[in-house]
Design a protein around this nucleic acid. Structure first.
Length: 496
RNA sequence: GCCCCAUUCGUCUAGUGGCCUAGGACAUGGCCCUCUCAAGGCUAAAACAGGGGUUCGAGUCCCCUAUGGGGCACCA
């Protein structure tokens, strides 16, 4: 790629809501590209549509990026040499260059009203032509213009799109594509309220911010011919473009979007906002790994890698051009890998404390630290710890139902006797650790003439209150002799 | 309606004319391990959308069809 110019990419969210996982993926690839070349990643707020502005969304987007570790070098909050980085603060620039286009006969004022535009649209449709604008104000005489102005009409500025011939555009992922200029329209560049449309703003900003590579979602691909014409009209050197494929819904129908959020066939919630992933107990580096694997692959048949490794290898030109169904089930697996292989126990203590406390438990950090080794192979998300091991922290132990305690081919009396026998062992056993406990309880099984499953099962349920839990004897060890006995006795009493 | 992009196991992908008896991963089934559940190990099933070309040879190149996606705003 460019040897002389520094690589600069940007992410340009419009502040209309929180950061979406699709947007995050797009941002990630741009970020990866910049970081790979040691360049800069710029955050630019594209708020040229005043009507869609949602208060607070800039912060939500920034929080989402930060959570994922996608840091930006220049942006509205950080400043930088090419600011301001919020489009609504750059209006004079856009207006100046729109005027330049006018002065150089590359654009014109159009005075059509919304109603007239509708009519044109309908007419074009009726004639089976692409809807849009037919360019009727391209060559207005000064008198006609004055008449419109006298009517109080406010003009827009439209681009004089070349109408004949073909244009070849270049995309880093797809190669060269040819478009017929006759299919293009005289697009609005400056709205009647003086704000630019995306098309004008993006070209001007990318130029003055010295963006070297434009990474954006595939839905922008159809406007590449327009943008290419615009670059040529301005006579500016064009950056390289890479249009990223999008994420599709799990059912394969349509682009993943907020509106499609909901539940999949198996009843699981489909997460789409980065905040939702965070709240659901996913680890940001795992999410980044997951996202990086969609549409791009590390090579060497490796699925698990650190972001530093991805940066080193990332190549935008090898991105798969096809859209992908969002492979969400892989995230659970990856998150599990990160939990058990990549995170330290101390990090896990910090992360697991949050959902536990959110669930209302008072967390003893010493206890939490002890249970980390036995929960980490059993959870996929941080939140899973609540159901698996919340019982370690419940001050008033929630006893199980008798049906859960009583094992196969046993009745309440037998089970109670079993627990009482267990309690007797617990009272005196030394040392009170899981290997000793396990060895002794195996003997107890024989003494009682029962099966492993019957004894261990009843003990598990009695101590943890659940049928699925951390290993029983490790659990007892952590709970301690006193608490373990208290629970066993309590459950035994329930069976009377 | 018109224009554009795409199409390999259920899903994410490897594959850039012979190394493909199409590889990996997730999910799924089986076995092992085992105090539950996991984790781990082994293993099984599972794909080049269809049809025409080009070529000695096609998953890989070309065309058509089908399907999916995107676009055609004073939204981004």
């Amino acid at each position: 790629m460019s040897e002389t110019k520094p690589v600069r990419t940007r992410f340009g969210p419009s502040p209309t809501g929180p950061l979406h996982i699709g947007g995050a993926r797009t941002a990630l690839f741009g970020w990866l590209l910049a970081r790979h070349y040691g360049g800069q990643f710029i955050l630019r707020i594209e708020d040229t549509d005043q009507t869609r502005f949602v208060e607070g969304s800039v912060d939500l987007v920034k929080n989402g990026l930060s959570w994922l570790g996608l840091d930006w070098d220049e942006g509205p909050d950080k400043g930088g040499p090419y600011g301001p980085y919020t489009q609504s603060e750059r209006l004079d620039l856009y207006q100046k260059w729109a005027q330049w286009l006018l002065d150089n006969d590359k654009a014109y004022r159009a005075y059509d009203t919304p109603e007239e535009l509708d009519a044109i649209n309908n007419e074009l449709r009726a004639r089976k032509l692409p809807p849009g604008y037919d360019g009727r104000h391209r060559n207005l005489s000064p008198e006609q213009e004055e008449a419109f102005i006298a009517e109080g009409r406010k003009p827009v500025i439209r681009f004089k799109t070349p109408q004949e011939g073909k244009i070849v555009v270049k995309d880093l992922i797809r190669g060269e594509v040819e478009f017929d200029n006759s299919t293009l329209q005289d697009t609005v560049l400056l709205k009647s309220d003086g704000f630019p449309t995306y098309h004008l703003a993006v070209i001007i900003d990318d130029h003055f911010m010295e963006i070297s590579h434009v990474t954006r979602s595939i839905e922008w691909f159809p406007s590449l011919p327009l943008h290419t014409h615009l670059w040529q009209a301005f006579g500016w050197e064009m950056p390289q473009y890479a249009h990223l494929p999008v994420l599709l819904n799990p059912n394969g129908k349509g682009k993943l979007s907020k509106r499609h959020a909901g539940f999949s066939e198996d009843g699981k919630q489909i997460l789409v906002l980065t905040k939702e992933f965070e709240d659901a107990g996913y680890y940001a580096p795992a999410v980044v790994n997951f996202l990086t694997n969609i549409g791009w692959n590390f090579g060497d048949e490796r699925e698990v890698f650190d972001v530093e490794e991805a940066i080193e290898r990332f190549d935008i030109t090898t991105v798969n051009p096809a859209n992908s169904v969002y492979p969400i089930e892989k995230l659970d697996w990856l998150n599990g890998i990160y939990i058990r292989e990549k995170m330290t126990d101390d990090e896990l203590v910090t992360e697991l404390q949050k959902p536990l406390e959110a669930a209302g438990y008072t967390v003893d950090l010493d206890v939490l630290k002890q249970i980390v080794p036995i929960v980490k192979t059993r959870i996929k998300t941080f939140n899973d710890v609540v159901d698996l091991a919340g019982f370690f922290f419940s001050e008033d132990f929630k006893p199980p139902t008798p049906e859960d305690v009583i094992q196969k081919k046993m009745d309440a009396a037998q089970t109670r006797d079993l627990l009482l026998a267990t309690d007797e062992v617990l009272a005196t056993i030394e040392p009170f650790d899981h290997t000793t406990l396990y060895e002794r309880m195996k003997e107890l099984v024989g003494e009682l003439g029962l099966k492993n499953g019957q004894v261990f099962g009843a003990q598990r349920v009695a101590v943890t209150g659940q049928t699925i839990s951390t290993p029983t004897f490790e659990t007892m060890e952590i709970l301690g002799r006193e608490e373990t006995r208290r629970r066993i006795q309590l459950v035994a009493k329930l069976l009377e």
